[in-house]
């Protein structure tokens, strides 16, 4: 590998590490993707239950929604199309079935949008995050993430993998805090789930804007809605 190639590669890898790091302060720690309610209902009690829940969330929940949005946002940023980013953001907003999941995605996205200008000065990205800041577009986290990733030189494929892995690690992190699974076992499960992440990424990468779909994992959506009405809860979603 030449120095130039290595530098380019290293730059995008470091960018991906930064965007996927749990230290990125965008409020992911406050969300559990419906897991808290499922846990309290006794529907996710074992590691096997958890693994099934995550697989369902990936394949039936985010692959054709947030994953696809990240890929499409990557395309739009690459083409310098602010209108494309706004269209994807609006489309994803319609596909968020519960108010809490919509709000969670917007909140994390708006926090990432405030960080974005410090990451890259791409003019389309700067215009888009300004629209988010002005509340003219919802600013869903996967759309902002896709745009930021493209600006920072992360490939389309890696952007989608990062987005889907982020969903998995968010649920696993919540599972550790809910005492569904120990931290070391969560890391083992992350490895086991790699084929599911890759398979879902394949779906996301091949999904056009007209083919984006809302979550088809009804149990998760219902859990999310019931969780929103809970008096006693650890997580915002």
């Amino acid at each position: 590998m030449t120095n130039c190639t290595f530098d380019t590669h290293a730059s995008s890898v470091l960018a991906m590490m930064q965007l996927s790091d749990s230290a990125l302060p965008i409020g992911r720690h406050a969300h559990a993707f419906g897991l808290e309610r499922l846990f309290r209902d006794g529907r996710v009690e074992t590691p096997q239950d958890l693994q099934s829940m995550i697989m369902s969330a990936l394949t039936h929940g985010v692959a054709r929604a947030d994953g696809a949005a990240a890929a499409l946002a990557h395309d739009a940023l690459g083409a310098g199309l602010l209108s494309g980013l706004l269209e994807i953001d609006a489309r994803l907003d319609l596909l968020k079935l519960t108010a809490s999941s919509q709000a969670a995605s917007r909140r994390c996205g708006s926090r990432l949008a405030t960080l974005a200008p410090a990451f890259h000065a791409n003019s389309t990205l700067v215009k888009f995050v300004q629209e988010v800041s002005d509340k003219k577009t919802p600013g869903h986290v996967s759309v902002v993430s896709g745009a930021v990733a493209a600006a920072m030189g992360i490939s389309r494929e890696d952007t989608v993998l990062m987005e889907l892995r982020g969903v998995v690690t968010m649920i696993l992190s919540a599972a550790v805090r809910l005492d569904v699974i120990p931290a070391s076992a969560a890391q083992e499960m992350l490895v086991v789930l790699a084929p599911e992440i890759i398979g879902s990424a394949g779906i996301s990468l091949g999904t056009g804007i007209g083919e984006m779909e809302c979550g088809a994992a009804a149990g998760l959506e219902i859990a999310s809605m019931r969780h929103a009405g809970d008096h006693s809860r650890l997580f915002a979603t």
Binding site: P25, H29, A30, A32, A174, R177, L178, R233, L234, F235
Partner: peptide
């Protein structure tokens, strides 16, 4: 709601 992370919600994130 701080997602069971009170210190995270006031310090790291």
């Amino acid at each position: 709601e701080s997602g069971a992370c009170p210190h995270t919600a006031i310090r790291e994130d």
